[in-house]
Each structure stands twice: as C-alpha cells, then as structure tokens.
Computed example of a mutant assay.
Amino acid sequence: MQAHGELVLTRLNDAQSIAPIDIVATDLVYRDYLGESYLITYNPTHQWFYFPQMQPSEALLFKCFDSAKDGRGLLLTLGLMTQ
C-alpha cells in the first residue's frame, strides 16, 4: 500500500498504556447475532510501536486478548497511518 510515495506504516499500541477509561463498549448488531466489542478512544498518553521498514513478506504476530489479569496485554490495538 502506498500513500504520498511512502509505505503505509503499521503501528501497535502498547496495552499497558491504555487506561480503563479509554475502553468503550460497542454493540455488534447483525441479523442473527448480537454481541459486544470494544473500541479505544484517543489518549495522548498511549504508547505506540512503529514498524516503518516492514516488508510485504514479513508478518506481525500479536495477542489481542488474554484472560490473565496480571497486567499482560489485555488489549493491543492495530492501526495504519500514512506519512
């Protein structure tokens, strides 16, 4: 993917920088399913990991959820940005 001559940068949010107030419950409504998901609101204290030189042949493996309540990555958000 290209934007303004630069590759789209992949970034991951450090779960430990997300405060409980940053997490917003959101309904998932489908014809045959009702569920819930969570969105993360903006907070300038969020910490990000960037991968600006990632190649198309490379992949990231990351944990989205962990039931452990000891501070490990309970949430890790993925985003795309352009420069």
Rank of each mutant, 00 (worst) to 15 (best):
G5C: 01
G5E: 04
G5H: 04
E6A: 09
L7K: 06
L7F: 06
V8L: 03
V8M: 10
V8T: 13
T10G: 06
L12C: 07
L12A: 10
L12F: 05
N13I: 01
A15V: 13
Q16D: 04
I18E: 03
P20V: 07
I23S: 09
I23H: 02
I23W: 05
V24A: 08
A25S: 08
T26S: 14
T26D: 12
D27Q: 01
V29Q: 06
Y30L: 14
Y30S: 13
G35I: 11
G35V: 13
G35W: 12
E36C: 13
E36R: 11
S37L: 04
S37C: 08
S37D: 05
S37K: 02
Y38L: 10
Y38E: 13
Y38R: 10
L39Q: 11
L39N: 14
L39A: 12
I40R: 09
T41P: 14
T41M: 15
T41N: 15
Y42A: 01
T45G: 00
Q47D: 01
Q47V: 02
W48G: 09
Y50W: 13
F51C: 09
Q53G: 07
M54K: 11
M54H: 09
Q55Y: 12
Q55N: 14
P56V: 00
P56W: 00
P56E: 01
S57T: 11
E58A: 01
E58L: 07
A59M: 03
F62W: 12
C64Q: 06
F65T: 15
S67D: 15
A68I: 06
D70V: 03
D70E: 02
R72M: 02
R72S: 08
L74G: 13
L76Q: 13
T77L: 08
L78W: 11
G79K: 10
L80T: 07
L80P: 01
Q83Y: 07
Q83I: 01
